[in-house]
Amino acid sequence: MIGVELVKMLRRPRTWVTIGLLNGLPTLVAILLALTDLGPRPGTGPAFLSAVLSDGTLFPLAALAIVLPFFLPIAVAVVAGDSVAGEAQAGTLRYVLTRPVGRTHLLFAKLVSVIAFVLLAVLVVAATGYVVGTLLLGDQPLASSVSGTSLTPAQVTGRTVLSILYVVLSMLGVAAIALFLSTTTDSALGAALGALAVLVASSVLFTLDAAAALQPYLPTRYWLAFVDLFRDPILWRDVLRGVLLQIIYVAVFLGASWANFTTKDITS
């Protein structure tokens, strides 16, 4: 069933359109930077963007930092929100379940397919960022940490891999929320928008001083903490809190999805 779900995801035009669009914005930014040579001053603008003018190899991280706040979560919410509700809406869910595919099994396969999509999207964004960055921007091996000291290429590679894993985990939190909503409704759009509403609310509360007490628990709170992996020495505090928080979100919402979906009347 996992194979079937992967085939469904990969053969769907939407998957590739989404990934294409995800790459559009970072590529546009790279072109603009290359043409104008006007990077944001260090410490302002999206993370890493001030450094990429001299070192294009950092651009994959800059690309991830550009898509992470909005584009990537939207894509993940759409795909995960569609996973069960989309099948309900199209009516295929009843035929899948009477094949029969066990409900727990189906949910698991959907989750694997969403994870595969997140990985694919993040890797394509990083790879495109690398290609675009080295082609258009400087490629002096001047890799420097956000703290100003220089990093060896091996350190950059290792920390890039860690960041990608961190971003994937953050997106799994989104996916779990969207998947849960997807099991509660027959509207794929409703599930995706519901998940986005949660994220927007989280972002709004994050900027509000009065919500300080809530902030450590907001799903988006530690999303950009992967930047800390490029400090020298690495600042682990927020990264670890982010990992723990996302694991809790994933566990709670997946549990809720399972409890809801396995006991639900399929009337679609």
Partner: peptide, 19 residues
Amino acid sequence: AAYGHLSGRANLSLFDAMG
């Protein structure tokens, strides 16, 4: 009900592989 963007054959192939 079927997956609209796929052909009839591809649909049957998916359903046959399920479960």
